[in-house]
Design a protein around this nucleic acid. Structure first.
Lengths: 146, 146
DNA sequence: TATTATATGAGAATTATTCTCATTTGTCAA
DNA sequence: TTGACAAATGAGAATAATTCTCATATAATA
Protein backbone atom coordinates (compact mmCIF):
# COMPACT_ATOMS: atom_id res chain seq x y z
CA UNK A 1 0.00 0.00 0.00
CA UNK A 2 1.30 3.45 -0.83
CA UNK A 3 2.00 6.03 1.78
CA UNK A 4 -0.55 8.51 0.44
CA UNK A 5 -3.29 5.91 0.48
CA UNK A 6 -2.40 4.87 3.97
CA UNK A 7 -2.44 8.43 5.24
CA UNK A 8 -5.74 9.10 3.55
CA UNK A 9 -7.27 5.99 5.06
CA UNK A 10 -6.06 7.03 8.48
CA UNK A 11 -7.65 10.43 8.14
CA UNK A 12 -10.96 9.04 7.00
CA UNK A 13 -10.92 6.55 9.83
CA UNK A 14 -9.97 9.06 12.51
CA UNK A 15 -12.80 11.23 11.28
CA UNK A 16 -15.18 8.26 11.55
CA UNK A 17 -14.13 7.61 15.11
CA UNK A 18 -14.37 11.22 16.23
CA UNK A 19 -17.89 11.51 14.87
CA UNK A 20 -18.94 8.44 16.81
CA UNK A 21 -17.07 9.00 20.04
CA UNK A 22 -14.72 6.08 19.53
CA UNK A 23 -11.16 6.33 20.73
CA UNK A 24 -8.57 6.06 18.00
CA UNK A 25 -6.29 3.23 19.07
CA UNK A 26 -3.48 1.56 17.11
CA UNK A 27 -5.47 -1.67 17.21
CA UNK A 28 -8.51 -0.06 15.63
CA UNK A 29 -6.42 1.59 12.95
CA UNK A 30 -4.83 -1.74 12.09
CA UNK A 31 -8.14 -3.55 11.98
CA UNK A 32 -9.77 -0.84 9.92
CA UNK A 33 -6.95 -0.86 7.41
CA UNK A 34 -7.09 -4.63 7.14
CA UNK A 35 -10.72 -4.39 6.18
CA UNK A 36 -11.07 -1.15 4.24
CA UNK A 37 -11.49 -1.76 0.55
CA UNK A 38 -11.53 -5.52 0.92
CA UNK A 39 -14.23 -7.48 -0.86
CA UNK A 40 -13.85 -10.83 0.82
CA UNK A 41 -16.43 -10.33 3.57
CA UNK A 42 -14.18 -11.76 6.23
CA UNK A 43 -14.95 -13.30 9.60
CA UNK A 44 -13.36 -11.99 12.78
CA UNK A 45 -11.03 -14.96 12.78
CA UNK A 46 -9.97 -14.23 9.21
CA UNK A 47 -9.14 -10.61 10.05
CA UNK A 48 -7.29 -11.74 13.14
CA UNK A 49 -5.14 -14.19 11.21
CA UNK A 50 -4.48 -11.61 8.53
CA UNK A 51 -3.03 -9.05 10.87
CA UNK A 52 -1.47 -11.44 13.36
CA UNK A 53 1.91 -11.81 11.66
CA UNK A 54 2.48 -8.07 11.52
CA UNK A 55 0.72 -7.32 14.80
CA UNK A 56 1.14 -10.28 17.10
CA UNK A 57 0.09 -8.26 20.12
CA UNK A 58 -3.47 -7.66 18.95
CA UNK A 59 -5.72 -10.28 20.52
CA UNK A 60 -8.58 -12.06 18.85
CA UNK A 61 -10.86 -10.63 21.51
CA UNK A 62 -9.95 -7.12 20.44
CA UNK A 63 -10.43 -7.88 16.76
CA UNK A 64 -13.85 -9.34 17.37
CA UNK A 65 -14.98 -6.60 19.73
CA UNK A 66 -13.68 -3.93 17.41
CA UNK A 67 -15.53 -5.35 14.42
CA UNK A 68 -18.73 -5.51 16.45
CA UNK A 69 -18.20 -1.97 17.65
CA UNK A 70 -17.58 -0.83 14.07
CA UNK A 71 -20.80 -2.53 13.00
CA UNK A 72 -22.70 -0.94 15.87
CA UNK A 73 -21.47 2.51 14.92
CA UNK A 74 -22.02 2.07 11.21
CA UNK A 75 -18.40 1.94 10.09
CA UNK A 76 -19.14 -1.41 8.49
CA UNK A 77 -21.96 -3.90 8.11
CA UNK A 78 -22.64 -7.38 9.37
CA UNK A 79 -23.90 -9.34 6.40
CA UNK A 80 -25.97 -12.46 5.92
CA UNK A 81 -24.40 -15.88 6.21
CA UNK A 82 -25.72 -19.41 6.26
CA UNK A 83 -24.34 -19.84 9.75
CA UNK A 84 -20.80 -20.59 10.61
CA UNK A 85 -19.01 -17.42 11.55
CA UNK A 86 -20.32 -13.87 11.42
CA UNK A 87 -19.14 -11.93 8.39
CA UNK A 88 -18.33 -8.27 7.97
CA UNK A 89 -18.54 -6.00 4.95
CA UNK A 90 -16.76 -2.65 4.75
CA UNK A 91 -18.64 -1.68 1.61
CA UNK A 92 -21.50 0.56 2.70
CA UNK A 93 -22.61 1.56 -0.77
CA UNK A 94 -25.84 -0.02 -1.94
CA UNK A 95 -24.88 -3.31 -3.53
CA UNK A 96 -26.02 -6.88 -3.89
CA UNK A 97 -24.66 -10.33 -3.27
CA UNK A 98 -24.02 -13.50 -5.16
CA UNK A 99 -23.75 -16.07 -2.38
CA UNK A 100 -22.52 -19.61 -2.86
CA UNK A 101 -24.63 -21.88 -0.68
CA UNK A 102 -21.88 -24.48 -0.57
CA UNK A 103 -18.61 -22.68 0.15
CA UNK A 104 -20.06 -19.40 1.41
CA UNK A 105 -18.20 -17.26 -1.10
CA UNK A 106 -19.83 -13.87 -1.58
CA UNK A 107 -19.37 -11.66 -4.62
CA UNK A 108 -20.56 -8.07 -4.57
CA UNK A 109 -22.28 -6.61 -7.57
CA UNK A 110 -23.84 -3.31 -8.47
CA UNK A 111 -27.24 -3.01 -10.08
CA UNK A 112 -29.08 0.27 -10.41
CA UNK A 113 -32.44 -1.43 -10.91
CA UNK A 114 -32.02 -3.49 -7.77
CA UNK A 115 -31.00 -0.37 -5.86
CA UNK A 116 -34.31 1.18 -6.83
CA UNK A 117 -36.44 -1.59 -5.43
CA UNK A 118 -39.35 0.00 -3.60
CA UNK A 119 -40.13 -1.31 -0.16
CA UNK A 120 -43.85 -1.99 0.22
CA UNK A 121 -45.51 0.91 2.03
CA UNK A 122 -47.01 -1.18 4.80
CA UNK A 123 -43.55 -2.15 6.01
CA UNK A 124 -42.25 1.38 6.06
CA UNK A 125 -44.72 2.22 8.81
CA UNK A 126 -44.05 -0.81 10.99
CA UNK A 127 -40.32 -1.16 10.60
CA UNK A 128 -37.36 1.17 10.56
CA UNK A 129 -35.63 0.18 7.34
CA UNK A 130 -31.86 -0.07 7.66
CA UNK A 131 -30.92 -1.45 4.26
CA UNK A 132 -32.12 -3.71 1.51
CA UNK A 133 -30.39 -6.11 -0.78
CA UNK A 134 -30.95 -8.71 -3.46
CA UNK A 135 -29.22 -11.95 -2.55
CA UNK A 136 -28.75 -14.50 -5.29
CA UNK A 137 -27.95 -17.93 -3.92
CA UNK A 138 -25.84 -19.97 -6.27
CA UNK A 139 -23.40 -22.81 -6.56
CA UNK A 140 -20.14 -21.23 -7.69
CA UNK A 141 -17.98 -22.60 -10.48
CA UNK A 142 -15.49 -24.19 -8.13
CA UNK A 143 -18.18 -25.95 -6.12
CA UNK A 144 -19.92 -27.11 -9.30
CA UNK A 145 -16.73 -28.77 -10.48
CA UNK A 146 -16.49 -30.85 -7.31
CA UNK B 1 -53.89 -30.15 14.44
CA UNK B 2 -56.69 -32.12 12.83
CA UNK B 3 -56.38 -35.73 11.88
CA UNK B 4 -56.86 -35.11 8.19
CA UNK B 5 -54.14 -32.50 8.12
CA UNK B 6 -51.79 -34.75 9.99
CA UNK B 7 -52.40 -37.67 7.65
CA UNK B 8 -51.97 -35.45 4.63
CA UNK B 9 -48.71 -34.09 5.95
CA UNK B 10 -47.47 -37.59 6.54
CA UNK B 11 -48.27 -38.60 3.00
CA UNK B 12 -46.57 -35.59 1.50
CA UNK B 13 -43.56 -36.20 3.68
CA UNK B 14 -43.30 -39.89 2.94
CA UNK B 15 -43.47 -39.03 -0.73
CA UNK B 16 -40.66 -36.50 -0.25
CA UNK B 17 -38.47 -39.08 1.40
CA UNK B 18 -39.11 -41.81 -1.15
CA UNK B 19 -38.19 -39.51 -4.00
CA UNK B 20 -34.91 -38.64 -2.29
CA UNK B 21 -33.94 -42.05 -0.97
CA UNK B 22 -34.39 -41.04 2.66
CA UNK B 23 -35.67 -43.57 5.16
CA UNK B 24 -38.93 -42.63 6.80
CA UNK B 25 -38.28 -42.75 10.52
CA UNK B 26 -40.54 -41.65 13.38
CA UNK B 27 -37.94 -39.01 14.27
CA UNK B 28 -38.02 -37.51 10.81
CA UNK B 29 -41.80 -37.47 10.75
CA UNK B 30 -41.87 -35.66 14.07
CA UNK B 31 -39.27 -33.13 12.99
CA UNK B 32 -40.96 -32.52 9.67
CA UNK B 33 -44.32 -31.98 11.33
CA UNK B 34 -42.79 -29.57 13.84
CA UNK B 35 -41.50 -27.49 10.98
CA UNK B 36 -44.07 -27.81 8.20
CA UNK B 37 -46.14 -24.70 7.83
CA UNK B 38 -44.23 -22.80 10.48
CA UNK B 39 -43.09 -19.28 9.71
CA UNK B 40 -40.69 -18.71 12.56
CA UNK B 41 -37.52 -19.80 10.77
CA UNK B 42 -36.30 -21.82 13.73
CA UNK B 43 -32.86 -22.98 14.73
CA UNK B 44 -32.10 -26.65 15.37
CA UNK B 45 -32.16 -25.96 19.07
CA UNK B 46 -35.55 -24.33 18.82
CA UNK B 47 -37.01 -27.32 16.98
CA UNK B 48 -35.40 -29.66 19.50
CA UNK B 49 -36.92 -27.83 22.45
CA UNK B 50 -40.29 -27.69 20.73
CA UNK B 51 -40.58 -31.41 20.31
CA UNK B 52 -38.70 -32.49 23.40
CA UNK B 53 -41.64 -32.54 25.80
CA UNK B 54 -43.69 -34.82 23.56
CA UNK B 55 -40.71 -36.77 22.24
CA UNK B 56 -38.07 -36.90 24.94
CA UNK B 57 -36.22 -39.71 23.17
CA UNK B 58 -35.28 -37.69 20.12
CA UNK B 59 -31.78 -36.34 20.58
CA UNK B 60 -30.55 -32.92 19.60
CA UNK B 61 -28.01 -34.60 17.39
CA UNK B 62 -30.79 -36.25 15.39
CA UNK B 63 -32.76 -33.02 15.10
CA UNK B 64 -29.75 -31.15 13.80
CA UNK B 65 -28.65 -33.86 11.42
CA UNK B 66 -32.15 -34.32 10.14
CA UNK B 67 -32.59 -30.63 9.42
CA UNK B 68 -29.29 -30.57 7.57
CA UNK B 69 -30.27 -33.66 5.62
CA UNK B 70 -33.61 -32.05 4.77
CA UNK B 71 -31.80 -28.97 3.56
CA UNK B 72 -29.39 -31.06 1.52
CA UNK B 73 -32.25 -32.88 -0.18
CA UNK B 74 -34.35 -29.80 -0.77
CA UNK B 75 -37.14 -30.48 1.72
CA UNK B 76 -36.39 -27.15 3.32
CA UNK B 77 -33.94 -24.25 3.03
CA UNK B 78 -31.19 -22.86 5.16
CA UNK B 79 -31.71 -19.13 5.24
CA UNK B 80 -29.53 -16.13 5.90
CA UNK B 81 -28.76 -15.03 9.41
CA UNK B 82 -26.45 -12.48 10.96
CA UNK B 83 -24.61 -15.24 12.72
CA UNK B 84 -25.73 -16.95 15.83
CA UNK B 85 -27.40 -20.22 15.03
CA UNK B 86 -28.26 -21.61 11.61
CA UNK B 87 -31.90 -21.10 10.67
CA UNK B 88 -34.24 -23.24 8.61
CA UNK B 89 -37.21 -22.33 6.45
CA UNK B 90 -39.81 -24.86 5.33
CA UNK B 91 -41.38 -22.41 2.91
CA UNK B 92 -39.95 -23.22 -0.51
CA UNK B 93 -42.20 -20.88 -2.46
CA UNK B 94 -40.50 -17.78 -3.77
CA UNK B 95 -40.74 -15.20 -1.03
CA UNK B 96 -38.80 -12.42 0.61
CA UNK B 97 -37.65 -11.48 4.06
CA UNK B 98 -37.96 -8.62 6.48
CA UNK B 99 -35.07 -9.22 8.83
CA UNK B 100 -34.56 -7.39 12.12
CA UNK B 101 -30.86 -6.72 12.51
CA UNK B 102 -31.21 -6.50 16.28
CA UNK B 103 -33.34 -9.44 17.41
CA UNK B 104 -33.04 -11.55 14.26
CA UNK B 105 -36.78 -11.83 13.73
CA UNK B 106 -37.66 -12.72 10.15
CA UNK B 107 -41.01 -12.05 8.52
CA UNK B 108 -41.86 -13.62 5.18
CA UNK B 109 -43.62 -11.62 2.55
CA UNK B 110 -44.82 -12.21 -0.97
CA UNK B 111 -44.16 -9.79 -3.78
CA UNK B 112 -44.76 -10.62 -7.41
CA UNK B 113 -42.48 -7.87 -8.65
CA UNK B 114 -39.63 -9.04 -6.48
CA UNK B 115 -40.19 -12.59 -7.68
CA UNK B 116 -39.68 -11.37 -11.23
CA UNK B 117 -36.28 -9.85 -10.60
CA UNK B 118 -34.06 -10.78 -13.50
CA UNK B 119 -30.64 -12.11 -12.68
CA UNK B 120 -27.98 -10.35 -14.77
CA UNK B 121 -27.04 -12.55 -17.70
CA UNK B 122 -23.33 -12.64 -16.94
CA UNK B 123 -24.03 -14.45 -13.67
CA UNK B 124 -26.24 -17.07 -15.23
CA UNK B 125 -23.28 -18.38 -17.17
CA UNK B 126 -20.82 -18.47 -14.31
CA UNK B 127 -23.04 -19.61 -11.47
CA UNK B 128 -25.74 -22.19 -11.02
CA UNK B 129 -28.57 -20.13 -9.54
CA UNK B 130 -30.34 -21.84 -6.67
CA UNK B 131 -32.67 -19.10 -5.51
CA UNK B 132 -32.94 -15.37 -5.14
CA UNK B 133 -34.50 -13.13 -2.57
CA UNK B 134 -34.93 -9.54 -1.51
CA UNK B 135 -33.87 -9.08 2.09
CA UNK B 136 -34.96 -5.92 3.84
CA UNK B 137 -32.97 -5.27 6.98
CA UNK B 138 -34.92 -3.36 9.57
CA UNK B 139 -35.29 -2.61 13.23
CA UNK B 140 -38.60 -4.12 14.27
CA UNK B 141 -41.19 -2.34 16.38
CA UNK B 142 -40.23 -4.17 19.55
CA UNK B 143 -36.56 -3.39 19.16
CA UNK B 144 -37.31 0.24 18.32
CA UNK B 145 -39.21 0.64 21.56
CA UNK B 146 -36.22 -0.48 23.60
C1' DT C 1 0.12 16.53 32.98
C1' DA C 2 -3.55 14.45 35.80
C1' DT C 3 -8.01 12.45 35.45
C1' DT C 4 -11.27 9.50 33.73
C1' DA C 5 -13.86 6.89 30.79
C1' DT C 6 -12.87 3.64 27.45
C1' DA C 7 -10.23 -0.06 25.34
C1' DT C 8 -7.37 -4.04 25.66
C1' DG C 9 -5.65 -8.84 26.64
C1' DA C 10 -5.90 -13.18 28.95
C1' DG C 11 -8.44 -16.71 30.36
C1' DA C 12 -12.59 -18.83 31.24
C1' DA C 13 -17.39 -19.65 30.11
C1' DT C 14 -21.01 -20.27 26.97
C1' DT C 15 -23.19 -21.47 22.74
C1' DA C 16 -23.36 -23.80 18.31
C1' DT C 17 -21.83 -27.36 15.46
C1' DT C 18 -19.65 -31.55 14.17
C1' DC C 19 -17.53 -36.05 14.84
C1' DT C 20 -17.11 -40.90 16.41
C1' DC C 21 -18.78 -45.15 17.19
C1' DA C 22 -21.71 -48.69 19.01
C1' DT C 23 -26.44 -49.89 18.43
C1' DT C 24 -30.86 -49.86 16.19
C1' DT C 25 -34.05 -49.81 12.48
C1' DG C 26 -36.21 -49.04 7.77
C1' DT C 27 -36.06 -51.06 3.25
C1' DC C 28 -35.70 -54.40 -0.15
C1' DA C 29 -35.07 -58.78 -2.13
C1' DA C 30 -35.78 -63.55 -1.57
C1' DT D 1 -42.39 -62.97 6.37
C1' DT D 2 -37.78 -62.81 7.08
C1' DG D 3 -32.91 -61.84 6.75
C1' DA D 4 -29.27 -58.76 5.14
C1' DC D 5 -27.55 -54.42 4.79
C1' DA D 6 -27.20 -49.72 4.36
C1' DA D 7 -28.74 -45.89 6.71
C1' DA D 8 -30.19 -43.56 10.91
C1' DT D 9 -29.91 -42.77 15.78
C1' DG D 10 -28.15 -41.46 20.48
C1' DA D 11 -24.53 -40.53 23.66
C1' DG D 12 -20.58 -38.39 24.57
C1' DA D 13 -16.67 -35.99 23.27
C1' DA D 14 -14.38 -32.66 20.29
C1' DT D 15 -14.21 -28.50 17.85
C1' DA D 16 -15.61 -23.89 16.46
C1' DA D 17 -17.54 -19.43 17.35
C1' DT D 18 -18.80 -16.07 20.52
C1' DT D 19 -19.14 -13.69 24.77
C1' DC D 20 -17.96 -12.53 29.52
C1' DT D 21 -15.03 -11.00 33.42
C1' DC D 22 -11.69 -8.39 35.34
C1' DA D 23 -7.20 -6.42 35.97
C1' DT D 24 -4.32 -3.30 33.44
C1' DA D 25 -3.30 0.13 29.98
C1' DT D 26 -4.22 4.14 27.32
C1' DA D 27 -6.58 7.98 24.48
C1' DA D 28 -9.01 12.12 25.23
C1' DT D 29 -9.93 16.12 27.79
C1' DA D 30 -9.39 19.79 30.81
Amino acid sequence: MQKETSTYLNEVFIQHCRERGLKVTPQRITIYKALAGSTDHPTADFVYRNIHKEHPNISFETVNRTLLKFAETGILDVIESFSGARRFDPNLDSHHHIHCVQCGMIVDFKDEQFNNIQIPKQFKREYKVVSKRVVINVICELCQSK
